[in-house]
Nucleic acid binder design. Structure first.
Length: 556
RNA sequence: UGGCCCAUCGCCAAAUGGUAAGGCAACGGACUCUGACUCCGUCAUUUCAAGGUUCGAAUCCUUGUGGGCCAGCCA
C-alpha cells in the first residue's frame, strides 16, 4: 500500500483551508465555456482541473454554457463542446446549465442593485463612457447620469427591458468608484441593450447582462464553491466579490485564478485558431496541425494521454509554456502497452531472398505487441520478395551499425534470419535490390542453435504490402514566434504545411478496425486518419517523431 | 510614468522559516526479436539581483530587474 501523500497544488490548499475552517462543505466546481468556438488543449486543463477537483473532494462538477452575449454565440458550438468535454471524461451528470436560463434572476438582481442605489442607467454612448473612464494613470469622471433617483433608474431600466431603446442607447452601470486604480471598478457596465435573437431565449430579452455581473450570479445560483478561472480575471475578482456581497448571497462563491496552459511550438488560444480556420490556413477545426480537442482526437491522442499530460503540467500562477515533448511522452506512454503495433517501411528498397522458393507464400503468425502478448496475434504473408527500409541497409557500415550490410546476418522481425550476399545499384549509385539468403530453421525469429543476431528490422511482403500515405504535420508555431505580424497580417512558414510520404505497411494493417484505428509504425506512433482514408488508401497521421532508432548511428 | 499578479535546472513543478522533491528533455552505460521499451547512472552548494530581519531565508521585509494582465456596451 502506497501511503505517500502527493503534494497539493495551491488550489487544493485553498480548498482544504476552506473546508477546515467551515466555509464550505461540498466542493462544487464548474466549466463555463462560451459557445463561440471549439475547445482546445488549454480548455482541457480547465475541464480536467475542475472535474478532477470535484472528483477528488467528492463534490460536484457542472457544465455551464456562459451564453450572455447573443452576438457571439452559436448553438452549433454547444454540441461540439459537450462532446469534447464528455470525451475527456469529465462527467457533469445531470448538471448541464445555461447562463441564459438565469436571465430572470439576473434581472431581479439588477433591480435589487438599483433599489440599493448601487446601479444606475446611463445615457452615455460607448465612446463617452470610455472617455469618462479615465486612463490607467488618471481617475475617471462621474457619469452625468449617476445622480438619477432610484425611481427614475427603475423606470428607465424597465424601459430598457421593454425595448424602448436601440442598441447602445442606454446601459446599466454599477455604482462603485470612478477613481479606483482598478479599471474594472470604475462603474462597470452590467447590462446592455442588444436586439438580437438569442440561441436559447430567442426574443424574450433585449437586454443582456455583462460577464462581470452575470458570472458571480451564475456561480451563486448553482452553489459553486470555487470558481476557477484564468489569470487575466485576477483584476475582476474585486468586482466579482462586490457583486456577490451587494446581492447578499448566503454562501458566496470564491474566485481562484490559475495560469493558462501554453504549449511550445503550437498556436493555442481560441481566437488564433479561429483565424487560422477562417482564413483557411488550415483545413478546419480538426486540422492535425492544431491542438484543438477535435484535432488531437483525430490525430490519435487518447483522453487518458491528455489527462496525464495535464496532471504532469501541474497548476500554478506563473505564466509558462509546457514542452511539446511532454505531450508526446504522454501519448507514447498511454499507447505503449494498449495498442497493437505493425511493421512498416517508410522508404522501401527491395530485398530478394534467393533461396526462398519462387512463387511460395507462407502465413507467419506475429505478435501484435511484443510487450503485451495479451493483445493477440495476426498473420503476415512472407515470400521471396520483400521491402525493407533504406535506412536499414548500408553498403559500408559505420562502426556499431548492426542492421543489414553485406555479409551480416540480421533478423526480419518475427520471421527469419537473413544474410545479405549482394546488392544492385543503379547508375546514380542508389541501391535498388538486395539479395539475401534465409535460414529456414530460424522461422519465428530464433535459431534452434542459439545463434544471436544484433539487428532486427521491419519488413513487408512486396506483392501483398499496402501502400499507405503518411502525413507529416509540422505544428504551426505559436503567436510569439510570429504567426501574426504587428499589423495583423499572417506570416506563416510554408514548411509547416503537410508533408506526404508513401510508405508500405503490412496488408493486415489495412484493416484499421483490427487495430482500433491505431497503428504503430516502427518506433513512431501513427493513427489512421479516418477523414482521409479510403478503401484504396490508408492515411496515417504521424503523431510523434520517430525516435533515434530511425537515425544513423552516431559517429564518434 | 496607476493598479494587480508572477519569478526555483533547457521545459513544467514541489518545498508554506529548518538546510533545494519529482517529471519531461538531454547525456553516459546495461539489456533487448523494434537502436523502441525497460533498467541503472549523471544533470540547481543554490532559488532574478542587491540589501535587511533571523540561530537559521527559495520562503518574511525593502529596493531594484525581468515577464504577464487591465482603459469592450467580449468572455
Amino acid at each position: 500500500m502506497e501511503q505517500e501523500m502527493e503534494s497539493k497544488n495551491f488550489i487544493e490548499q485553498i480548498i482544504d483551508k476552506d473546508i477546515a475552517e467551515g466555509r464550505c462543505q461540498t466542493v462544487c466546481t464548474r466549466f463555463p465555456p462560451e459557445p463561440n468556438g471549439y475547445l482546445h488543449i488549454g480548455h482541457a486543463k480547465s475541464i480536467l482541473l475542475n472535474a478532477g477537483l470535484a472528483n477528488k473532494y467528492n463534490g460536484k462538477f457542472n457544465l455551464r454554457f456562459d451564453d450572455t452575449n447573443p452576438t457571439k454565440e452559436k448553438i452549433e458550438f454547444v454540441e461540439s463542446i459537450k462532446e469534447d468535454v464528455k470525451w475527456l471524461g469529465a462527467d457533469w451528470e445531470d448538471r448541464l446549465f445555461f447562463a441564459s436560463d438565469y436571465f430572470g434572476q439576473m434581472y431581479e438582481a439588477a433591480l435589487k442593485l438599483i433599489r440599493k442605489g448601487k446601479a444606475y442607467v446611463s445615457d452615455l454612448s460607448a465612446d463617452e463612457i470610455r472617455q469618462y473612464r479615465g486612463t490607467l494613470t488618471e481617475a475617471g469622471k462621474e457619469d452625468p447620469s449617476a445622480k438619477r433617483s432610484v425611481d427614475e433608474n427603475l423606470a428607465l431600466f424597465e424601459e430598457m427591458k421593454e425595448g424602448r431603446y436601440v442598441d447602445g442607447e442606454k446601459v446599466l452601470r454599477a455604482r462603485i468608484d470612478m477613481a479606483s486604480p482598478n479599471m474594472n471598478l470604475r462603474d462597470p457596465v452590467i447590462y446592455r441593450v442588444a436586439h438580437m435573437t438569442h440561441h436559447n431565449t430567442q426574443d424574450a430579452w433585449c437586454i443582456y447582462p455583462m460577464y462581470d455581473f452575470a458570472h458571480p450570479i451564475e456561480d451563486a445560483i448553482e452553489g459553486i464553491t470555487h470558481s476557477i478561472c484564468t489569470l487575466e480575471f485576477e483584476d475582476h475578482r474585486p468586482l466579482y466579490d462586490w457583486v456577490v456581497r451587494e446581492l447578499e448571497y448566503e454562501h458566496p462563491p470564491k474566485q481562484i485564478e490559475f495560469a493558462k496552459l501554453y504549449l511550445t511550438n503550437v498556436v493555442t488560444g481560441k481566437r488564433y485558431i479561429k483565424r487560422l480556420v477562417d482564413e483557411k490556413i488550415v483545413d478546419g477545426w480538426d486540422d492535425p496541425r492544431l491542438v484543438s480537442i477535435a484535432a488531437l482526437k483525430r490525430r490519435g491522442f487518447t483522453p487518458e494521454s491528455i489527462k496525464k499530460f495535464i496532471e504532469l503540467c501541474g497548476v500554478s500562477k506563473s505564466n509558462s509554456s509546457a514542452d511539446y515533448a511532454m505531450l508526446e511522452y504522454c501519448i507514447r506512454e498511454d499507447l505503449k502497452l494498449k495498442k497493437a503495433r505493425i511493421m512498416a517501411v517508410l522508404d522501401p528498397v527491395k530485398v530478394i531472398i534467393d533461396n526462398y522458393p519462387e512463387g511460395q507464400t507462407e502465413e507467419l503468425t506475429v505478435v501484435n505487441n511484443m510487450e503485451n502478448e495479451s493483445l493477440g496475434t495476426h498473420t503476415v504473408p512472407f515470400c521471396r520478395e520483400l521491402y525493407i527500409d533504406r535506412d536499414d541497409f548500408m553498403e559500408v557500415p559505420p562502426r556499431k551499425y548492426f542492421r543489414m550490410y553485406p555479409g551480416n546476418e540480421v533478423r526480419l522481425m518475427q520471421a527469419y534470419f537473413v544474410t545479405c550476399n549482394s546488392f544492385i545499384k543503379d547508375e546514380s549509385g542508389k541501391v535498388t535490390e538486395i539479395h539475401c539468403t534465409y535460414d529456414p530453421e530460424s522461422k519465428g525469429g530464433n535459431s534452434p542453435d542459439g545463434r544471436k543476431v544484433k539487428g532486427t528490422i521491419h519488413w513487408v511482403p512486396a506483392p501483398y504490402a499496402k501502400s499507405a500515405e503518411v502525413r507529416l504535420y509540422e505544428n504551426i508555431v505559436d503567436e510569439e514566434a510570429g504567426v501574426y505580424n504587428e499589423d495583423g497580417s499572417l506570416n506563416l512558414n510554408p514548411n509547416s504545411l503537410t508533408v506526404l510520404k508513401n510508405c508500405y505497411i503490412e496488408p493486415y494493417a489495412a484493416d484499421a478496425k483490427a487495430y482500433d484505428s491505431f497503428q504503430f509504425v516502427r518506433q513512431g506512433y501513427f493513427c489512421v486518419d479516418a477523414n482521409h482514408s479510403t478503401n484504396e488508401k490508408l492515411v496515417f497521421n504521424r503523431i510523434v517523431s520517430l525516435k533515434s532508432s530511425y537515425q544513423l548511428p552516431k559517429q564518434s
